[in-house]
Amino acid sequence: MVVPRHVACVMDGNGRWAAQRSLPRTAGHEAAEAAVMDVIEAARSAGVAWLSLYAFSTENWRRPSAEVDILMRLVRRAIRKHAPVLHARGIRCRFLGMTDPRIPAPLVQDITDLMTLTRDNRRMTLTVAFDHGGRRDIVEAARSLIRSATPAEQVTEASFAAHLPCPDTPDVDLVIRTSGEQRISNFMLWQVAYAEWVFPEVLWPDFRATHFWECLDTYLRRQRRFGDVRRPTTMTGEGLR
C-alpha cells in the first residue's frame, strides 16, 4: 500500500452548502475551517508528506467585495487560531501565490509569520494556494527562465520546473475536488499533469477525515488495478514520463 506522496484538495462547495441552509455564503466559508483542520490531521496521520489546499484563486477576486473581505478575515482568524497547533504537529506551512496587493497587510504579515514559524518543520508540508493561478505560475517561471538567459536548447521539463514557485514541491499524485464539480480551475497546472482525480459529491464544509480516507482508498484501488494490467510501479509522474 503506497500512500500518495502529494495530495491536493480543491475545496469546492462552500457557497452551495450555505445556500442549502439559507445562510450567507460567508457562513459556508466559516464552516470550511473545520473541514480544513480535519483534513490536515487526517493527511498527516495517514503519512501524506505533501498536502496542498486550493483556498483562493486569482479568479476569486471577482466575487462581491463584502464576501472577499469576510473571507480574508476568516483566513486571518483561522491562521492565528491554528498556528500554534500546526507548528506543534510539525507541519511546515507555505502559501502559493500571494502576490495581489488587495490582500490586507495584516493578513500578509500573519501568513509570513506562519511560514517563518513553521519553516523548519518536516513532518508534512502544507501548501495553501492563496491568490493562486496555475497559468500565472507558469508565466512567472517562463519570465524567470528568460531572465536567467538560459539557452533555448537547454530548457527541459526539469530545468523549467526549477523556476516555478516552491520548486521543491513534488508532482501531485491525487487531487480531491469536492462537491462533484469536475474542472481543473487553473489549479497547480504544472504539478497536476499526472495526478489522479477523485470527485466526491460531498460539499467541502461537510468533508471530514472519513471522506479523505475514502479518497485515499479510491486512489489506491485505482492504482492497483492499473498496476496489474500495465505496470507494477507507483503512479508518480516519474513513472509515466
Binding site: 500554534p84 507548528h87 506562519l114 523548519d120
Partner: peptide, 19 residues
Amino acid sequence: RRRAGKAAALARLLTPAGD
C-alpha cells in the same frame, strides 16, 4: 536569527490582532 525570527513570529501570532 532563525530562532529569533520564529519566536517573534509566534509572539505576533499569539498577540491579539491589532486591526
